[in-house]
Structures are given as structure tokens and as C-alpha cells.
């Protein structure tokens, strides 16, 4: 199991399984809070890769919580874009 502590769950921000479990156990929090505390899911891919594993960690650690409660939020831009693209004038 010690080996598993070092698994990188969020590859963009390099957050390990051990760090996520520790945070979830200490704060008994929602997936959204776990994200804000560790930066897991806040990297380049926008959490597309680790969203489900994060939900599973919370479900496993925090009792009386399901994936339906306080899900991770989505925010624009949902794809990496340059400032130039976002700042362009319409038409």
C-alpha cells in the first residue's frame, strides 16, 4: 500500500494519491474542497483526466457523501486558449 501513496493521480499538477487521501481524511471535505486544497484537477487538462478518481477518493474517505453531492465545477475556458483568442473582438 505504501507504494500506492506515491501514485500521481493528477498528472497536470502532480498531486499524489497519498496527499489526496491525507487531505480528504483530515478535512472530511467535498471533491470541490479537495481540489481547492491540493490543486488536483486545476491543471492544463481542466480535470478531464482525474475527475473520477478524485470523486472516488472522497466517496471512500468521507462517509455519507456520494458523487452527486457538490460535484467539481466547470469553468470557462474549458480548453487552453491564448489571451489573444479570448481577448479578440467578436466578428
Amino acid at each position: 500500500m505504501n507504494n500506492n501513496e506515491a501514485i500521481v493521480v493528477c498528472r497536470c499538477e502532480e498531486v499524489t494519491y497519498g496527499a489526496l487521501r491525507f487531505t480528504a481524511e483530515e478535512h472530511q471535505c467535498t471533491a470541490r474542497e479537495l481540489k481547492l486544497r491540493t490543486r488536483a484537477g486545476m491543471g492544463f487538462c481542466g480535470g478531464r483526466t482525474c475527475r473520477i478518481p478524485l470523486d472516488r477518493i472522497i466517496e471512500n474517505v468521507v462517509s455519507n457523501i456520494s458523487q452527486g453531492d457538490t460535484p467539481l465545477k466547470y469553468q470557462p475556458p474549458i480548453r487552453p486558449v491564448t489571451f489573444g483568442t479570448v481577448g479578440e473582438k467578436n466578428d
Partner: peptide
């Protein structure tokens, strides 16, 4: 979605 395990990167 992945199933992360040691060495998956």
C-alpha cells in the same frame, strides 16, 4: 477515466 496505479505515467 483512468485507474491510476504505480508506473501509469
Amino acid at each position: 477515466y483512468p485507474i491510476p496505479l504505480p508506473g501509469w505515467t
